[in-house]
Amino acid sequence: MRGLVADETLDRCDVAGRPLGEQASGRIGEVHTKLITCPYGDQRRGGQMNATAYGQVEAHWPAVLAALRQATGPTASAAWRATSRLRWLVLDLPDPVSEDIAAIFKTALGMNRPLTSWLLLAPGAASRPLDQLVPPSELLARLDEEGWLIGSRQVCAGPPARILDAWGALSDPRDTEVLTADALATADRATDLVVALWAILGATREALRAGCWEEAPSWSPAGPIQPDWPQVLRLLRMNGPGALVREVPRFEPEWALHVYDTPPERVAQAVRGARVALAEPAPLGALDAVWRRCVNQLAPSDPA
């Protein structure tokens, strides 16, 4: 579960010893990394980029494209789900992961975040084709203008043509056999759990604004996480996928459903449960219960 909620997949390693999160992992110092100056003609130009990581992705590019095609479908929601599936695929794989899986992970991770943001901000877009969300002719400019290619210390190493290739693959579903059905099903559950987490944490923040001194007298967004806090408060403080909810002033629980064309009932239940919990006398405890139900449904072998 920590692999998911605390994003510990970034510290998982491939057979070459490279951490999947590259610069985002504290283990990056354990491997050789060649940094070069970015030559691309956008905001990245002149920034430091990770040539070693890009070399790995490039070496496995056919597998990356095949995985994107296998995991995607006809809508923008399916494309988003593909990037999410491939980003969480490693949860169920033993260490170390193969280099082609590492290349798939890195590509999916880079595409997942902007796609998530664009869908969250565009209600209804999830059920339309990906090209209507962002046409390929506008993709690079939009990524550049909105800063998606700039990291905290490095820039994205993907050449513009490769980014367009990957976008094209997400609009081109095909039956390939890169990934097993079991692996995709596990990644689907993780994906839905993350979306449910957004809804629950959105409600948690609303409960905090209303004041929850009796349930969490020592709550603070700063300082150490306290073990006696309700679990939703501990999840809210983590820097995993739930951190997205802290980036906006208010995250309505229902907003999480914008990523779906047809919301899975298990996630819709969590959203409704989160809204109902806010009316309870002890909303944080009620939200803890909603989270436990989600985990029991979606990750029954993992303790909540």
Partner: peptide
């Protein structure tokens, strides 16, 4: 600022009422 992992700036929820530790 020199951390490896991006930590995005966070909105903090401050209820009306008593003081709270809002940041460090």
């Amino acid at each position: 600022p020199l951390s490896r992992r991006i930590v995005t700036p966070s909105f903090v929820d401050i209820p009306a009422g008593p003081p709270m530790l809002a940041g460090r």
